[in-house]
């Protein structure tokens, strides 16, 4: 089990009003493995990512990420774990508009002393921007970037801490075909380089062949 990047065991999670209940009997993702999650809107794909990242805690069952049972950790410990070891790309990018592209990428370093903002981190952030075609736009404020550029900045922010697990929620949702390819190449390439597991939520079935495996979230309930 320790060599699993993500491990869900009999997980049950519901929202307070009882309208939504996500059940995952078993889900395993090996280290360095790349998988896609599909499913209709409202089926729980984003919730699955939040459970894997420790943003949400299951009512029952256990979630282990990078060999750590995060469902048993307190909130502070889960935050510490998440910011250092998990990279997250949110569905709506969730950039801070008053910061530049570079500052957005370096945001995790500004939020915790557990990550050291040194020359290496800055170089890594600039290199990521370069690789995503934003080399000359590091100083541009986020609210002055196009949708596609904002999405790429969000990907760079997830990758900058060299996470062991990369969780991406529709990372190519708003991109044209060329940029979809570039972003996916970037995610897959960086995950490969770091030996990180990659779990991507997507609606785009055309992307599925790029992943080692894919599964529909509705089929995980056992």
């Amino acid at each position: 089990m320790a060599d699993r990047a993500i491990h869900f065991d009999n997980v049950r999670f519901g929202y307070g009003d009882g309208d939504f209940m996500l059940r995952i009997a078993k889900l395993e993702l090996g280290r360095g493995e790349r998988a896609a999650v599909i499913g209709p809107s409202g089926s729980g794909k984003t919730t699955l990512l939040h459970l894997a990242a420790g943003i949400a805690v299951p009512e029952e069952g256990a979630v282990r990420t990078c060999g750590v049972e995060i469902s048993g950790l307190d909130d502070a410990a889960r935050r510490r774990f998440r910011i250092r070891r998990v990279g997250l790309v949110f569905q709506e990018f969730e950039l801070l508009d008053h910061l530049s592209a570079l500052d957005n990428v370096l945001l995790p370093y500004r939020l915790t002393r557990a990550l050291r903002l040194d020359d290496a981190a800055r170089a890594r952030a600039e290199s990521l921007l370069q690789r995503t075609g934003l080399g000359g736009k590091g100083s541009r404020r986020a609210d002055r970037l196009s949708q596609g550029e904002r999405q790429r900045v969000a990907v760079c922010r997830a990758l900058v801490v060299e996470p062991e697990v990369l969780l991406a929620d529709e990372p190519t949702g708003n991109l044209d075909t060329d940029n979809k390819g570039r972003i996916l190449d970037l995610l897959l390439g960086c995950a490969d380089e770091a030996g990180a597991a990659l779990l991507v939520v997507t609606h785009d079935r055309d992307l599925l062949p790029r992943f080692e495996r894919s599964f529909d979230v509705r089929e995980l309930s056992g």
């Binding site: 909130d75 510490r80 250092r84 801070l96 945001l107 939020l111």
Partner: peptide, 16 residues
């Protein structure tokens, strides 16, 4: 609120 929620999701420590 949304900005602060993002900080929490990224893993900002309590009190940030």
């Amino acid at each position: 609120r949304r900005e602060f929620a993002t900080l929490v999701k990224i893993g900002a420590p309590r009190g940030t």
